[in-house]
Amino acid sequence: MKKLYNKADLTRDKSLDYQKRMMIRQFTEKMSDREHLFPCVPAMIGYSLDQLRYGFVGDPTEEDTIHELADLLRIYSERSREYGKYTSLIIFYDISEEMNKTHGIEQYEQLFWKQLSELIDQDNAEWPSEIPTDPNHNMWEFCFHGERYFVYCATPSHKNRNSRSFPTYMLAITPRWVFQQFKESKYAEKIIEKVRRRIEKYDSVPIHPELKTYGENNNYEWKQYFLRDDNQSLSKCPFHFKQ
Score class of each variant (00 low, 15 high):
194 K>G: 02
75 I>E: 09
195 V>W: 00
33 D>A: 05
29 E>W: 13
178 V>T: 07
65 T>C: 04
85 K>V: 14
63 E>H: 13
180 Q>C: 02
190 K>P: 00
208 H>W: 03
204 S>I: 13
8 A>I: 15
241 F>N: 09
33 D>L: 02
210 E>T: 13
109 E>D: 10
164 R>N: 06
98 E>V: 05
178 V>S: 03
18 Y>W: 12
48 S>N: 05
242 K>F: 01
81 R>G: 10
225 Y>L: 03
150 F>C: 01
62 E>S: 10
80 S>E: 15
167 P>E: 02
164 R>V: 07
127 W>E: 01
25 R>V: 00
213 T>I: 12
166 F>E: 04
218 N>S: 06
138 N>K: 09
164 R>Y: 01
214 Y>V: 03
200 E>D: 10
151 V>M: 06
123 D>V: 11
30 K>D: 08
11 T>P: 00
131 I>P: 01
113 W>L: 02
94 D>P: 02
216 E>C: 03
169 Y>V: 04
150 F>G: 00
222 W>Y: 11
198 R>L: 09
74 R>I: 01
82 E>G: 04
66 I>G: 04
52 L>E: 00
179 F>W: 13
9 D>V: 12
139 M>C: 04
76 Y>R: 03
216 E>W: 04
165 S>G: 03
91 I>V: 15
55 G>W: 01
24 I>H: 08
68 E>R: 09
52 L>Q: 00
174 T>A: 14
187 Y>C: 04
134 D>T: 12
188 A>N: 07
187 Y>L: 08
182 F>M: 07
